[in-house]
């Protein structure tokens, strides 16, 4: 009796698996979820472990649109820090003399300032490889991102908009173009809307020089969804202080 039940359960499971596989194939046919081309590791052990174990391809794919969004507007610097981290990883995939196109809208430029050359080295980027768009409108910014995809010497483009958000049509267009070109577009956003991005990371700054990183959206085949609580990271290169034997001038208990 028990055995019969077991076998029927197995048969059901096999049937369900078969159905699921067919569905996967169907979806993959219309919307290739399984990534193609190269992918990167983020350099954060917890995130990489998740991608390695649970996600098809085992990394963040180069070809695609990736959104890095802020928990609140004040978190934009942390968002940009994370986006720069990803950009540096993407740049490492490209050739030696490839450039990073970094563009900002007028509002982002006014609120967040301009990228500071001497600090880039700490984030794995180099000054010589940066091409910077100093304040443009959102349509121009997205246009520039699409143009950059047509040029094989731009390894990655990072577009920042703190107030305005590309709508679904824009993001779908960019996403398709990025996937076809097998090169990434990173969007650093202050707000979010429905989008066709491959991944969306939600970043918040947390005390003691850390980030709360949540992978809100993942349009790749995975086994278990990313943890909804996200990851708490204390990236070493992002520390403002903490040299081994230098105490800060002031430290207050929170």
């Amino acid at each position: 009796m028990q055995r019969a039940l077991n076998s029927s359960r197995q048969a059901n499971r096999a049937k369900r698996q078969h159905k699921l596989n067919r569905l996967h194939r169907l979806v993959a046919k219309h919307e290739p979820m399984v990534q193609r081309g190269a992918s990167i590791t983020t350099g954060f052990a917890e995130i990489d472990a998740y991608f390695d174990a649970q996600v098809a391809g085992g990394g963040v794919p180069c070809g695609g649109l990736h959104e890095v969004a802020a928990e609140s507007t004040a978190d934009m610097p942390a968002v940009l820090g994370f986006a720069h981290r990803l950009a540096a990883r993407f740049m490492a995939q490209g050739a030696d003399d490839d450039v990073l196109l970094y563009g900002q809208t007028h509002a982002a430029c006014r609120d967040g300032g301009q990228p500071y050359g001497p600090a880039l080295a700490a984030h794995g980027l180099s000054v010589e490889k940066l091409v910077y768009l100093d304040g443009v409108t959102l349509p121009d910014l997205l246009w520039a991102g699409e143009q950059a995809l047509t040029c094989p010497s731009v390894a990655c483009s990072l577009l920042t908009s703190s107030e305005t958000v590309p709508d679904f049509t824009h993001s779908r267009r960019l996403s398709l173009a990025a996937r076809a070109a097998e090169r990434p577009i990173l969007l650093a956003l202050g707000k979010t809307a429905a989008s066709a991005a491959t991944t969306r990371w939600r970043i918040a700054a947390i005390p003691n020089q850390g980030w709360q990183v949540t992978l809100e959206k993942l349009r790749l085949a995975y086994d278990t969804p990313p943890p909804s609580a996200g990851w708490v990271l204390y990236p070493a290169t992002m520390q403002i202080v903490e040299k081994p034997n230098v105490m800060p001038l002031m430290r207050r208990a929170v």
């Binding site: 050739a95 768009l133 100093d134 040029c151």
Partner: peptide, 24 residues
Amino acid sequence: PIAALGGLYDRLVSRLGAQVVVRP
């Protein structure tokens, strides 16, 4: 690649202006 990059710069500059497309 260099020519391609030059072409991209040209397109960016002609649409956005020479003072916007910069390098540090």
